[in-house]
């Protein structure tokens, strides 16, 4: 989770990524930032994120992102 927060902090600079639950709803992460995030997460956690996973529910908070990564790791 700490590694994910580091990645998120680097991409969403200036945002309170630890507590924010509206990263998508408040446009903190735009589509380019989402793609950078996906590429970093895929590399760091060795998972494959498909377009179906790119829904606000999965990207609105660090916690939701972590849940998605754990789920995808379990699927592997």
């Amino acid at each position: 989770m700490e590694k994910l927060l580091e990645i998120l902090e680097e991409i969403a600079q200036g945002a309170d990524v630890r507590n924010c639950t509206t990263l998508i709803d408040d446009h903190i992460l735009d589509s380019f930032a989402i793609l950078s995030l996906v590429s970093e997460l895929e590399e760091e956690f060795d998972v494959e994120i498909s377009p179906a996973e790119l829904i606000p529910d999965n990207f609105n908070s660090a916690e939701k992102l972590w849940e998605m990564v754990c789920r995808l790791k379990g699927d592997n």
């Binding site: 589509s31 793609l35 996906v38 590429s39 994120i49 498909s50 377009p51």
Partner: peptide, 19 residues
């Protein structure tokens, strides 16, 4: 277009390979 063109193309394997 974002959901059905932008993301699928961005995450397509050949595109990732080039990147």
């Amino acid at each position: 277009l974002k959901d059905y063109v932008f993301y699928p193309v961005s995450l397509a394997k050949p595109v990732k390979k080039v990147a």
